[in-house]
Each structure stands twice: as structure tokens, then as C-alpha cells.
């Protein structure tokens, strides 16, 4: 079996948001929404440090769909639009989604975004990989782990684009893969482990 996952080394992340833009470009994500965002936990505004001088820290956390092993969004979807594919990717079937948004309420990570209106794109045409489905108004969308790229054996765009090589992508089921070795070695953590979602995205802090 193959189970794709990712480790993000927060000690290497410099908060440049290249992954944010790369994701938006690759996946034709319209204005006012992102599949992948970078946050400063505890800060009042972006790039703000946390703590009191001189004990300040500044940490960037990229957050997208965590591709949970136990996805709460998939459990509550009334029509089965959200599903886990054979590679462990949590995906949405846009033709099936009825836009009830219960999955948005169920996701602890605010990873899901909704097409509230006719999508606005700048420039005024579809961009990104042509195989990426264009989402209609009234459906939910989110990170697909770049399903179109990873199905071809490539890395997700955020992994390829990261200039500081903070992201490691690979097969969690292969014990000799780079990602499995990294997980054994660095003992990365999950976001919100108390929610019991068992994400396939790990963070080295």
C-alpha cells in the first residue's frame, strides 16, 4: 500500500510564503481564498514576534488540509463527496458536493474554503495545471496534496517550490522512504493531536 504524507520542518521554514503562492498557482485557486496558508501562532499580525523582549520567538506554521487518517470532514459529509483515495489523500468530488458546508464546521484546521460566488481570478483566466478541475460556485475545496502531480509521481508543488527545503514528501507506508526515516528520527508532531484526527501531515518543531 501507498500512503502519501508530508513532514514540515518548522525550524527550516522562513515564512516566505512561496508555498502559498505556488499552491494557488498550481491549483487555480481564486481570489480571497487559499488552500495553503502560513500563520504565526499567537501573534497579533503576520511577521509579528511572540513573547516579551528580549525573549521573543517568531515561528511560521504552514497550514493546509492535514489529510487525516480519521478525517472528521469525511465522516460528516452527507453525500460522500469527501473521500479518502487509495493513496490516503482526502479528496472532494465536486460533482457530488451539495454545498451544505458541514465539513467546514467539522474541520478543526479551517483548511476548507467555499466558492461563495463566481470565482474571481487575476489574471482573468484559469491558471495552473490544466488537469486540475475547475470548481463551480457552491462547492467546498481544499488541498488535494496536488493529486494531479502526485499521481504522476511528482512532489506536491509546495514541496518543490519551498526554497528552504522545509517540506519532505513521500510514502508513509514504505519504511525506507525519506519521510519514514525522518519521522523515526525527528519524532515530528501533529497539529491539534487532542482532536484525534491522526493527520498525515507532520511538523518538526
Amino acid at each position: 500500500m501507498t500512503k502519501y504524507g508530508m513532514v514540515i520542518n518548522l525550524n527550516r521554514c522562513i515564512g516566505c510564503k512561496t508555498c502559498v503562492v505556488a499552491c494557488k498557482m498550481q491549483n487555480n485557486v481564486p481570489m480571497d481564498m487559499l488552500w495553503n496558508r502560513v500563520i504565526n501562532a499567537g501573534a497579533r499580525s503576520y511577521d509579528d514576534a511572540v513573547g516579551s523582549y528580549p525573549n521573543l520567538i517568531k515561528q511560521y506554521t504552514p497550514v493546509a488540509c492535514q489529510h487525516c487518517e480519521n478525517p472528521p470532514c469525511q465522516a460528516v459529509c452527507p453525500v460522500g463527496a469527501t473521500h479518502t483515495d487509495e493513496f490516503g489523500r482526502v479528496l472532494i468530488d465536486y460533482d457530488v458536493c451539495i454545498g451544505c458546508r458541514i465539513c467546514m464546521a467539522a474541520c478543526p484546521y479551517n483548511a476548507r474554503v467555499f466558492n461563495w460566488s463566481e470565482p474571481v481570478r487575476v489574471p482573468d483566466f484559469d491558471y495552473g495545471q490544466k488537469e486540475v478541475a475547475v470548481r463551480p460556485v457552491g462547492v467546498v475545496e481544499k488541498c488535494t496534496l496536488c493529486a494531479e502531480r502526485t499521481s504522476e509521481g511528482k512532489d506536491p508543488m509546495c514541496v518543490s517550490a519551498c526554497p528552504s527545503r522545509a517540506r519532505t514528501y513521500g510514502d508513509l507506508d514504505d519504511p525506507e522512504s525519506a519521510i519514514s526515516l525522518l519521522i523515526r528520527d525527528a519524532k515530528p508532531e501533529h497539529l491539534l493531536p487532542e482532536k484525534g484526527t491522526s493527520p498525515k501531515i507532520y511538523y518538526i518543531t
Partner: peptide, 25 residues
């Protein structure tokens, strides 16, 4: 419920592909 749906035209999916785990179904 109907006015809240983003894809009311696809509402029949509730009966075509019900997912019995969902409290909504």
C-alpha cells in the same frame, strides 16, 4: 436547509449516494 445549500441543483445526491455516517443524512 434548501436555501442554505450551495448546490441545490445537486440535492438529489442525498438520495443517490447517501453516506450513512453523517448526522446530516
Amino acid at each position: 436547509v434548501l436555501v442554505d445549500l450551495g448546490g441545490v441543483a445537486r440535492v438529489f445526491n442525498l438520495f443517490v449516494s447517501p453516506q450513512w455516517n453523517s448526522p446530516l443524512i
